[in-house]
């Protein structure tokens, strides 16, 4: 999984700072979790999301908005044994 900083026109969009896997990111303040994943080029069905140490199930990704200071952990399922 590669995270890239999305190009953002700071003059026209209010921004917030969140962290994703311990790295700070400046994002548009209106982003949903789904929007955050898409902006980072992360396929929706490739990861699970934890926000502030609580799992956010996939059904909530469209509705839940990112807010200033949110700490996200984004990771893939590990299936080996």
């Amino acid at each position: 999984m590669h995270l890239t900083k999305a190009p953002l026109d700071l003059k026209h969009v209010s921004t917030i700072t969140v962290s994703i896997n311990d790295q700070p990111y400046i994002i548009a303040e209106t982003l949903s979790i789904e929007g955050l994943l898409l902006a980072q080029n992360i396929a929706i069905n490739s990861v699970a999301v934890v926000c502030n140490s609580q799992v956010v199930t996939k059904g909530q990704w469209k509705e839940q908005r990112c807010i200033e200071g949110d700490s996200f952990e984004i990771f893939a399922v590990v299936a080996g044994g």
């Binding site: 069905n45 490739s46 699970a48 893939a76 399922v77 299936a79």
Partner: peptide
């Protein structure tokens, strides 16, 4: 607390297994 499927729905993409990436 839900179940395995709540965290990882059936359509999740799996990239890492011991066979493919080692351990």
């Amino acid at each position: 607390s839900g179940c395995y499927h709540c965290l990882f729905p059936t359509d999740s993409q799996v990239s890492e297994t011991c066979r493919s990436v080692g351990v």
